[in-house]
Design a protein around this nucleic acid. Structure first.
Length: 303
DNA sequence: CGTGTTTGACCGGCGC
DNA sequence: GCGCCGGTCAAACACG
């Protein structure tokens, strides 16, 4: 494995969203760095995640290890850094909230419809069928998902929310299992999955699904809230490019069925999300992330 | 005792 | 219809 963080870039798509899969390639010019024109391809995928060829993204590495970014290897402590990718609905604000409110009851229904498990011996048939019939009515809709990768020695990264693990499964073709977590705050529908990349085991792939229905992360220790959670998952407005930004250090993108949105951010913006762990997992000089109001207007679009 | 994890069974979708 | 697979359930367990 290379010593440097290899910014594989994952981009989440829905299984039935083949528009993006049909995209054979494209080109992007990164703002503020005229010569940084890269191509991208979407011909490979892993577990439903589009995987961008990292070799085409040398400039990402430059961004991530740019002058202001510093080295992530300059201490013996576990280091973390992240590249994120994801998908937002066509109208991020409205549909995001509606989808989350829709999903909560759905989830409950499905749980009730099932219940039981190995304990079932007697008159289970009826309830089983009931559950099936209910299920059949409407195809379960996928929540918007947002995947990003973090180079970290710890699997479960502190993101300010409280999570309960509810499952673990072996991942096909990977020696590393996938863990399933649910947000434990109230009836929050958000789930996340964690798995290590089998390509580079030092990388943790985190996939968030759904939107938190509570504004504030349930700050547990008040230290790292919001560190690794993508802004959209925090219920925060998406970050906005500013006039005086000169060096994008952090790359964040979203895609819907027709467009891939991306947005570089300044170090100042992403700094709260990129830093070293100390041995206690605490951070010094923590400042809250600042995400000015924004919309997809502020994103650049691959077409 | 409350909270969180482990783990085998179960469910439903999907491809063959 | 069958088997595979990803996702989820929930009892048992661990721990503070």
């Amino acid at each position: 494995m290379s010593e440097e963080f290899n910014p594989f870039y994952y981009h989440q798509t829905f299984p039935d969203d083949d528009q993006l899969h049909n995209t054979s390639g494209g080109a992007a010019t990164f703002p503020y760095s005229g010569e940084n024109t890269s191509t991208f391809s979407t011909d490979s995928s892993v577990n439903g995640l589009q995987m961008f060829d990292p070799t085409l993204y040398v400039n990402f590495t430059d961004f991530l290890h740019g002058s202001a970014g510093g080295s992530f290897k300059d201490s013996g402590k576990p280091a973390v850094e992240a590249v994120c990718g994801g998908e937002i609905p066509a109208t991020p604000n409205s549909s995001a909230s509606s989808s989350s409110t829709e999903a909560a009851p759905n989830d409950e229904n499905s749980n009730k419809g099932r219940k039981k498990g190995k304990m079932a011996e007697d008159g289970e048939e009826s309830s089983k069928k009931e559950g099936k019939a209910k299920k059949k009515k409407e195809k379960k809709q996928r929540e918007p998902r947002f995947a990003f990768m973090t180079k970290s020695e710890v699997d479960l990264l502190e993101d300010g929310y409280r999570w309960r693990k509810y499952g673990q499964k072996a991942v096909k073709n990977s020696p590393y299992p996938r863990s399933y977590y649910r947000c434990t705050t109230g009836k929050c529908p958000v789930k996340k999955r964690l798995e290590r990349s089998f390509i580079d085991p030092s990388i943790v792939i985190t996939t968030y699904e759904g939107q938190h229905n509570h504004n504030e992360p349930a700050a547990r220790r008040g230290d790292m809230a919001g560190m690794f959670a993508p802004p959209s998952m925090l219920g925060l407005p998406l970050p906005q490019l500013q006039e005086n930004q000169s060096f994008p250090q952090y790359f964040c993108s979203y895609a819907n069925s027709s467009n891939l949105y991306y947005q570089p951010q300044t170090l100042a913006q992403h700094q709260p999300q990129f830093h070293q762990f100390t041995d206690r997992g605490l951070l010094q000089d923590m400042i809250p992330p600042v995400f000015p109001n924004s919309s997809t207007e502020n994103f650049h679009i691959f077409q």
